[in-house]
Design a protein around this nucleic acid. Structure first.
Lengths: 156, 156
DNA sequence: TGACAATAGTCGTTATAACAGATATAGTTG
DNA sequence: CAACTATATCTGTTATAACGACTATTGTCA
């Protein structure tokens, strides 16, 4: 047994388990892909969170959504939807309006300008994702999706 | 063909490709797992980025590392290592010292206190990861790792 | 109805991330 | 060796995220 770099402290730490390796790879891969997405969004002046919210609002259609519902649909939960929407509203990409029936809720809708920005981004983003994952053929992508779903199964 | 919710705008958007679904699931899964990790780190007063850096420094051993090297090893690239280390230094978890041979570089080392904190977290974090992924047996975890590696292949 | 809890969102504050430019030191080359 | 380029880090600034406390409105039930 060669002794090179066997610091006494090191030996005490158990070897990293497979689960830790999964987590590490998840982080690295997500970070790598996300970075390129943000690069693509930068010219439009959107963060990926803002982009995500705009897509949610487009998906919701003309009747709009309440803050809470937006929060529930987001990819990466943000505890402060209010100010996120403030910024989008300041840029004219969404409008807000208090609900008349229940005056607690504020309804948010995407504006035509917001829709235009999204439309201009649709194809570049789809193209990017295709390029990012072009190494993998459909069956592998499907396994990946299935494994990712399973990985977060049994969780609130 | 039923007409319910066929808004004219909707039809124009192409159905989301498989690659988009992969990306969505990556984001969701990473977010879900990371959230619980941060929950576990909170009592120790560390963000996951800080935790990551401490682990890198522990791995580097007593000779320490330069900022740039830390940056290269991080899971999620941070453009401002300086202030991240400032905070860790303020909490007494790392020390910094200008290199004598090359006075441009600043060497950062983890302190005994930093090591103690890490040691207290090692088992809870490993346990969490095991729990998070207990649905999946080793072969699946291995496929997942392989697919994640492939997904970020051919990239800087 | 009137007190109380639940819900929806907002605001103040601090911490951290992102971006751009500045500073100091080291290598390189005519 | 002087000028130039590259490297390593730092600083100023703005934007965003995270955490709590706070307000307004609605629902519930004695």
């Amino acid at each position: 047994m060669t002794a090179r770099r066997l610091h006494q402290k090191r030996r005490q730490r158990p070897a990293p388990g497979l689960e830790d390796v999964v987590f590490l790879n998840l982080m690295r891969t997500t970070d790598a892909l996300l970075r390129e997405v943000e690069e693509t969004l930068k010219p439009a002046g959107l963060s990926h969170t803002q982009y995500n919210v705009l897509r949610i609002l487009r998906g919701a259609g003309p009747q709009g959504l309440a803050c809470r519902e937006i929060g529930e649909r987001m990819l990466t939960r943000d505890p402060d939807i209010t100010r996120l929407l403030d910024r989008l509203e300041a840029h004219g990409l969404v409008t807000r309006q208090r609900e008349r029936t229940d005056r607690r809720v504020v309804n948010t809708r995407i504006t035509p300008q917001g829709l235009r920005i999204l439309e201009k981004l649709d194809e570049p983003i789809a193209e990017l994702h295709r390029r990012q994952l072009r190494h993998l053929r459909a069956p592998r992508l499907q396994s990946l999706v299935r494994l990712l779903e399973q990985a977060r199964e049994g969780r609130p």
